[in-house]
């Protein structure tokens, strides 16, 4: 199976969070097949960039999509064909 690139992983995470928001981080990890630690690292990065909002509760981290996250997801989906045609690993 071909290894997923970083852009594809970000797209998959944002897509899932966009559909299920707010969603526990553990469910995002299950749905995207990412190791929990790696996902949390990515979510913190996306949180810093304003694409998602991380809410740390008593028992679990919950992830919310933001407007900027939705816009970025739309743009990434629109660019997918172009990037694939250009031979960029996504």
């Amino acid at each position: 199976m071909k290894k997923r690139g970083r852009i594809r992983i970000i797209m998959e995470v944002l897509s899932y969070v966009a559909e299920e928001s707010p969603v526990p981080a553990t469910r995002v990890a299950q749905a995207t097949g990412l190791a929990y630690d790696r996902l949390v690292e990515l979510l913190e990065e996306l949180n810093d960039k304003g694409l998602v909002r991380l809410e740390t509760g008593e028992r679990a981290r919950r992830v919310h999509i933001t407007r900027k996250g939705l816009e970025t997801l739309r743009k990434l989906r629109e660019l997918k064909d172009f990037l694939e045609d250009l031979g960029v690993d996504i």
Partner: peptide, 14 residues
């Protein structure tokens, strides 16, 4: 411009 905007948001070198 469009690609630069995405680079700033996603931080991807490509």
């Amino acid at each position: 411009l469009s690609l630069f905007t995405l680079h700033r948001v996603v931080g991807e070198e490509a």
